[in-house]
Design a protein around this nucleic acid. Structure first.
Lengths: 250, 250
DNA sequence: CGCGAGGTTGATTTGTGTCAATGCACGTGG
DNA sequence: CCACGTGCATTGACACAAATCAACCTCGCG
């Protein structure tokens, strides 16, 4: 099982072999995108739905004066805009950060998935986790200083990547520039650089080319005050008990 | 029509008389809560769903060292935790800010609503708007300085209250303390006080007891860079065309 | 080999936090 | 009816984190 989408959804519901086949079919035919291009732009009428299979993408907004805020990071297995067709127009943009392999499908294909109650439950789960992640980012921006925030986000990204088999033990690829990290954390590139240096000096992270190395996760976790509960990755067993129970259409 | 829940959902879908009766029945039996009590606490297993009919409530998180971040503000018509039963445990708390009148119902009652395709669409719409609001708050915390952020949030609250008939022309009740505003904006109470003073000096707002007065909305809007598109309050006519079209179960 | 994007560093400014004192309104009990 | 306490708002002096400005460095690539 190397399909990150299926791996991710397994955390949200107990899937059958048949469910997995259905999801596999859904992911057939990903398309390659270069780095730094928009998949959807603010103001667009939403049409297709995007699922990241490889690479990193993000959700962002640009203010009239050019300031940019990244509001979500998408890693393999993440769906960017499930259900957004309900809204008349996009209030933000979605773009790639790196080269990406992306499944782009129409609303009908999503509807097919959603008719499967276990998959529906899993997709709802992923929507709620996305919201929880956004909330945690808000907490980081509001209450944590730059070092805490950076440690927190490294912990989160590592945990999310690990969950879908996209991180090695204690290290993950991060071809993200410091300027992009700045847009993500609401800081200046200069301060991102200094903060990275600080974390390096404290031995909390190491940067090895395009890899981020976490020599001692527990120390980094503590620095950022990271508590993975908001990712809800441990619920699978809890939901196994009621895993076959139908989630009401919603 | 004074029911704020129905007024709000009218923005998300074209409702029939029958739909309104169903929603009205759903809201029967609100319960009074005092100010500053939790409706749901972090770590709880989620059970009931909460709908605010009167007063203000909020979603918040407290860090181990006591810092608090408010992540969402609920005004009359807002549902706090639709669908959260899917998750094993709450990753945040929900509490009242003022005295509140709140409808508290089990998941089954929500399922009944959701079987109605127009109401289902409207609830999806409200979920997406909540997410959009959260994203906009992230932008505020990341990119806007204290004055911009405060102007922005006043514009948002005024617009949301106006949409459900809970604000008068150019003024709304705000029995929120400066300390709560601080938790909401990620600032200190002292700085909130100074920022309020600044906005007052610039004639952008006036404080009259428990009322916030906006003498000239356009000026405040411009100060905060507020663009109401993320509230998606203008979509009703757009969706009227396809208003009766069934939203697929999801 | 030279150019450019991204990374690094230092000096300085600015916005916000911190600490501490004061004011003011309201409610309660003597 | 007054005295007091309590919660919230206000203000000032000062500390500190992050922004800003500017220079320089490094490395990959044409």
């Amino acid at each position: 099982m190397t399909n990150p989408f299926i791996r991710k959804l397994e955390y949200g519901a107990q899937l059958s072999e048949e469910d997995r086949r259905q999801l596999e079919a859904f992911c057939r035919d990903p398309r390659a995108f270069p780095a730094h291009v928009d998949l959807v732009s603010e103001g667009d009428k939403p049409r297709s739905v995007h699922l990241v299979m490889e690479g990193y993408a993000c959700r962002y907004k640009i203010l009239p004066d050019g300031r940019r805020q990244i509001m979500a990071l998408f890693v393999p297995g993440d769906i960017c805009d499930l259900h957004v067709q309900i809204l008349g127009e996009m209030d933000h943009s979605i773009g790639t950060l790196t080269e990406c392999s992306i499944v782009e499908v129409g609303a009908e294909a999503v509807d097919d998935l959603i008719r499967n109650p276990r998959i529906n439950r899993a997709l709802w789960w992923s929507t709620l986790v996305d919201e929880g992640t956004l909330r945690e980012w808000l907490v980081s921006m509001g209450q944590r200083d730059a070092a805490e925030q950076m440690a927190h986000i490294f912990c989160e990204v590592y945990t999310r990547l690990k969950a879908v088999g996209q991180a090695e033990d204690g290290r993950f690829r991060s071809p993200v520039t410091q300027e992009e990290m700045a847009d993500l954390m609401g800081l200046t590139p200069v301060h991102v650089n200094r903060t990275l240096k600080l974390l390096r000096e404290q031995g909390l992270i190491e940067l090895d080319g395009k890899w981020v190395v976490i020599p001692h996760f527990e120390r980094l976790r503590q620095c950022g005050g990271f508590d993975p509960n908001y990712l809800h990755l441990k619920d699978r067993n809890a939901s196994k008990a009621e895993g076959l129970q139908e989630v009401p259409a919603s």
